[in-house]
Amino acid sequence: MDKISSYKNRIVLLCDEMQKLYGQLDSESKKDKDFEEEKIKYEVYKNLVNTVHNLVSTTLNSNDNLISLVSTLRYTLESLIVTKLCILEPTYIYKIYFQTALIHKTRLDSMISRIKKEIKLLEKLDAEETRLTTNSWKNLLEKINNSKNILGDDKEFSGGRIYEASYELNEKNILEMDNKASEHITLFFEDVENNGFNFQKYLIENQLLPRYREELRKTEEKIQNTADNLATSEYMKRFFDFNGEPKKVWKALEDRNQRGGYRTWNEKATTVGLGDEYEAIYELTSKLLHCVSYSIFTSKFLAEEEVLLIYRQLFQYIKKITTAINDIVSK
C-alpha cells in the first residue's frame, strides 16, 4: 500500500505541474502572434492538459474504483499518443482543432434526427391514446345506459357509480398509455405525464427543434467561413495545399491512412512507437469497460498489485505528456 500511496503522491505533484503548464499555455494562447493560426497549438495543448488534469484528479479520489482507474488509464494513453502525433506530424494539431466544428455538426445532425423520431413517436402515441379513450368511453356509456334501465330513478346512487367508473376508466387509460410510452427509450419525454402526448409534441416541434436547427445553421455557417479563411491563409500554406479553394479544406483536414480510411487508434499509436503499449491497454480496458463476461464477474476493485501497476503506468503517461509539452512551450 505504501508504494501505491507513493505513486499517488507523485501523480499529485504532476497534477500541480500540469496546472502550472496550463497557465503558461493559456498565456501563450493570448499573446499577439504574426499569424492568428499560431495560437492554435497552444489552445490544443492547453485543453488537452486541462482535460487530463481533471480526469486524473477525479480518479485519485475514486477509492481505486476499477472503472474509473482503467478508463482514466486508457484516456491518458490516448492523450499521450495525440501529444506525440502533434509533435511528429505538424499538420495533426490543426486537424484536431478544426475537426471540432465538424464533430459538433455531426452531433447536432444526430440530435435533430432523434428529435424528429420522438416527434413521430409522440404523434403515434397520441393517436393510440385517442383511439383508446374513444373506444373505452364508448363502452362505458353503453354500460351506463344499461345500468339506467336497472337502477331506475335512483339518481344519487347512479350518479356516484358513474363518477367512480369514469375516474377508474381515466386512471386505467393513463396507466396503459404510460406503460406504452415507457417501452421506448426516449430523451425528451420527461414532462409528458404532465403535458400529455399532443402538447409535448407541440413543445418539442415548435421550441426544441427550432433551437437545434438554428444552432446547426450557425455551425454550418462557421464551417463555411472557416474553410474560406483557411483556403487563403498564408500561415496554413506551410502545412496544407488548399490552393485557395475552400472545398479542398475539409478533405485535407481529414486524418486518413494510406489506404484512404480513417486512421485507427492502433495506427496512430504505432506511428509514434506506442503500438504494443496501446494493444496491451486496449485489451485490458475493453474487457473491463464493456459489458462482457469478464467485466460482469470481475470485482469492481482491483488487487493491490494491479492498482500499483495502473498508477505506475498512469504516472509514466502523464510525465511524458507534461515533459513533451513543456519542451514545446520552452522553445
Rank of each mutant, 00 (worst) to 15 (best):
Q200C: 13
N195L: 12
N229T: 09
N179H: 01
F240P: 03
N225K: 01
M177S: 10
M236Y: 06
D178S: 04
T219L: 07
E234S: 12
D178R: 11
N198W: 01
A181E: 03
L230G: 02
E176A: 15
T186W: 00
E171V: 00
Y235T: 12
E183A: 11
N194Q: 11
E205N: 15
K180Q: 14
N243I: 00
E171R: 06
F239I: 06
F199R: 01
E254R: 10
M236R: 01
E245H: 13
M177T: 05
E214Q: 01
T186N: 12
V192D: 09
Q224I: 02
D228Y: 03
R217F: 11
N173A: 06
L175K: 15
P210S: 08
E221T: 11
L209P: 11
A252F: 00
E245K: 15
G196I: 05
S182E: 14
D255L: 06
S233W: 02
R256I: 13
N198A: 01
A227M: 04
K218Y: 08
D255S: 11
E220A: 03
Y202A: 08
R256D: 04
E245N: 15
L208V: 14
N206A: 03
V192M: 15
R211W: 08
K180V: 12
K218W: 08
R213V: 05
N198E: 14
L216P: 09
F240S: 01
F242Y: 07
K172S: 15
E171L: 12
T264A: 11
I223T: 04
N206W: 03
W250M: 08
I174D: 13
K251Y: 06
E221Y: 08
T186L: 04
E183Y: 00
N173G: 08
D241T: 13
E205R: 14
N257F: 04
V192R: 13
K180W: 00
K180R: 15
D255I: 05
Y212W: 02
R256F: 05
N173K: 07
K237C: 09
E190W: 02
I204V: 04
N257I: 02
I174Y: 11
E190I: 07
R263M: 09
